[in-house]
């Protein structure tokens, strides 16, 4: 019994898990065997070029497209129709009626899902900052206002998991900041797990706690934000003939403890970067043949571009 409880808890730690999820159009795999893991509380940044398969993947998870193969697990369960009640989505453009006001748009949702609290509409509009739009028709809204209304619709049923596809596309810097702040607020205050795709990697890196990189329909890497910072950390890279001796010199003569040996004959020295010449000199004096020595490190965007083969 206890064992089953533990299994249940472990499974519930993942809000979304897919196993070899595939969508095929004709002979093309738009999404190719994607196995993704979104943990409770994550803001999961889903990154890929146009046509990489991000939207198709999200549409399958949201129940808007049927997978060709593979499995989806939501909240640790496979009865997707029931579990999808706990999801809010904003995929591609927000689904709104342009000739209605923001309030009327939400009223359609309130009635369609049988939400009895009539104040819920006004409360939600106030929450996303659209409380004062009055009789203004949605067709006259700015792009940012439309996106916020789309987010309001996706939040209306108090979801535990939010799927947002390019929610900051086409927004000005102020609009981007508004959405970013709103998402952080939802994640921290309401404990909503978020799966978000965006092209604006700098923005994504400000909020994401975990990343998945998709290329040509396949998930090529999945890692936590801390791992990314580690990967992008600036360092002095050294190619040497004797790594063991080099490490001894670093520790005993230079008192450097922040280093690693990612592969044989290769050293990465973190910190003391302004003393790189001294490091070289001491290694050579100590009998180590230094074949290469250079300062390395990337910003997030360059790292993603590298992964996507764009650099």
């Amino acid at each position: 019994m206890e064992k089953s409880g533990i299994t249940e808890r472990k499974s519930m730690d993942y809000i979304l898990k897919t196993n070899n999820l595939t969508k095929t159009y004709g002979k093309t795999n738009a999404v190719d065997s994607v196995s993704i893991h979104v943990k409770r509380g994550d803001i999961y940044g889903f990154i890929g070029k146009n046509g990489a398969g991000k939207t198709t993947f999200m549409r399958m998870v949201a129940g808007l497209a049927a997978p060709t193969r593979g499995e989806i697990e939501l909240f640790g369960k496979r009865d997707l129709e029931k579990q999808r009640k706990r999801i809010g989505t904003l995929i591609e453009n927000p689904g709104i009626y342009p000739n209605m006001t923001a309030e009327e748009n939400l009223e359609v949702i309130r009635r369609s899902f049988g939400i009895t609290d009539k104040n819920a509409v006004k409360d939600m509009l106030a929450f996303v900052g659209l409380g004062d739009t009055g009789r203004k028709k949605v067709k006259n809204f700015s792009m940012g206002m439309k996106q916020r209304l789309g987010i309001a619709i996706s939040l209306f049923r108090n979801p535990d998991f939010l799927i947002l596809d390019e929610p900051i596309n086409g927004l000005d810097p102020a609009g981007i900041k508004e959405i970013r702040d709103l998402l952080l607020k939802l994640n921290t205050e309401r404990n909503i797990t978020i799966l978000i795709s965006s092209h604006i990697l700098g923005e994504l890196s400000k909020i994401a706690t975990r990343y998945g990189i998709i290329k040509g329909g396949a998930l090529i890497e999945e890692f936590a934000a801390e791992e990314l910072s580690e990967k992008c950390r600036r360092c002095q890279k050294l190619a040497v003939d004797n790594a063991e001796l080099a490490v001894t010199i670093l520790e005993e003569k230079l008192h450097i403890t922040e280093y690693d040996v990612p592969e044989s004959g290769m050293l990465r020295v973190f910190g003391h970067l302004d003393e790189s010449a001294r490091v070289n000199r001491e290694l050579i004096t100590g009998g180590v043949e230094v074949r290469e020595s250079y300062l390395a490190g990337q910003d997030l965007e360059a790292y993603f571009m590298d992964l996507l083969g764009e650099s």
């Binding site: 129709e81 009640k85 999801i87 989505t89 689904g95 009626y97 359609v108 369609s112 899902f113 049923r157």
Partner: peptide, 14 residues
Amino acid sequence: GNGAMKNLAGKGYS
């Protein structure tokens, strides 16, 4: 056209 079908489909209703 306005994408509103997405607000209902996949939201718990068959």
